[in-house]
C-alpha cells in the first residue's frame, strides 16, 4: 500500500489563513514560526521579499545569518532568518515622535508612509535591526537605463507606491509587515511560500486548529533576545542563541 503523502504545509496553512480571515480583524493574532532544523540558508526569503515589495538598495526586511562554529572535522553551520518580530511590547512604536507606526489589533506592526517624517528614531530603537530607511536609491540607476521591475509600484498596505523622487516610501523607514497586502487577499506571506526547506510557518495562533499552533505546542520554541521581554511573535525551533 503506498502511504498517501499528506498535503504540502502551504496548502494546510493557506486554509488556516482563509479561516482566520473570516474572523473580525481584532480576533486574529498573526505569528510566524521558523524551524531552524529545516532552514538550509538558501536566502530565497530575503530575495522574494525584495522582489514582492520592490525594495531598493539598502532596504531589506528579512536576512539570513550564516554562522560557522566548531573545529575541523567537527564543524557546524547554522542559518538563522531574522526579521521584524512584530513584538507585543514595541520600543519602535514608542520611539516614533509622530505616531507614524503602530501595533495593529491583529498584531502586525505597520508604518503609515504618508505620516512618517523619516527621522529614523525607530531604526535605533529596534534591538533586532529589523528596520531600514529608503534613501531613494535604485539598482539600475548607474547603468544605461532604470528597469521596469524597479519602476512598477509596490502594493504594501494595499496601496500602490511608486518610488518617485520625493514621494513616499522614499525617505521613510520601512519594515516587514508580514505581507499584509497578501494576507488580506488570502495569500501567505512571500517568505513563507518561497521557503524551499518548508521551515517557515505562519498563521493565527489564536486558532487552536491551525498548523502553527499545533507545531508551537508540540515543540519547545524560543524567541530572539528573550531577556528583553518584548514578547516577539516570531518563534524559533532549534535556536542556539549563544551562537548569535
Amino acid at each position: 500500500m503506498s502511504t498517501k503523502i499528506k498535503e504540502d504545509i502551504l496548502i494546510r496553512m493557506q486554509n488556516d489563513l482563509k479561516r482566520a480571515l473570516t474572523k473580525p480583524v481584532e480576533k486574529r493574532k498573526w505569528a510566524m514560526l521558523i524551524d531552524l532544523r529545516k532552514c538550509v540558508g538558501c536566502h530565497a526569503c530575503t530575495i522574494a521579499c525584495k522582489a514582492e515589495n520592490v525594495l531598493p538598495p539598502g532596504v531589506v526586511y528579512r536576512r539570513v545569518l550564516e554562522i560557522e562554529s566548531g573545529k575541523y572535522p567537527d564543524v557546524e553551520r547554522h542559518f538563522v532568518p531574522v526579521l521584524c518580530n512584530h513584538c507585543d511590547k514595541t520600543p519602535c512604536v514608542d520611539a516614533c515622535p509622530v505616531k507614524a507606526t503602530k501595533k495593529r489589533v491583529d498584531g502586525i506592526v505597520d508604518i503609515d508612509y504618508n505620516h512618517c517624517i523619516g527621522c529614523r528614531a525607530c531604526l535605533n530603537a529596534c534591538p533586532y535591526g529589523a528596520r531600514t530607511s529608503d534613501f531613494g536609491k535604485f539598482y539600475t540607476q548607474d547603468t544605461p537605463k532604470i528597469q521596469p521591475y524597479e519602476l512598477r509600484p509596490a502594493f504594501e498596505y494595499q496601496k500602490k507606491w511608486y518610488r518617485k523622487k520625493g514621494n513616499s516610501p522614499i525617505g521613510n523607514a520601512r519594515k516587514c509587515h508580514f505581507c499584509l497586502h497578501r494576507i488580506e487577499s488570502g495569500l501567505l506571506p512571500e517568505c513563507v511560500v518561497t521557503c524551499i526547506g518548508k521551515a517557515t510557518y505562519f498563521g493565527d495562533i489564536e486558532d487552536k486548529s491551525s498548523l502553527i499552533f499545533e507545531i508551537i505546542n508540540s515543540n519547545n520554541v524560543k524567541v530572539l533576545k528573550e531577556k528583553l521581554k518584548l514578547k516577539p511573535r516570531v518563534y524559533y525551533i532549534g535556536l542556539k542563541e549563544e551562537l548569535l
Partner: peptide, 29 residues
C-alpha cells in the same frame, strides 16, 4: 540641522502637532 536630516523635511510640522509623548523626540518639540 535635525530638519535637514529628516527623510521628509516637508513634514516637520508633524513634530509639533501629533506629538507622541512616549517618544523622547515627542517631548523635544
Amino acid at each position: 540641522s535635525i530638519l535637514l536630516d529628516l527623510g521628509h523635511i516637508e513634514r516637520f510640522y508633524k513634530l509639533f502637532i501629533s506629538v507622541n509623548f512616549s517618544s523622547v523626540m515627542g517631548w523635544m518639540g
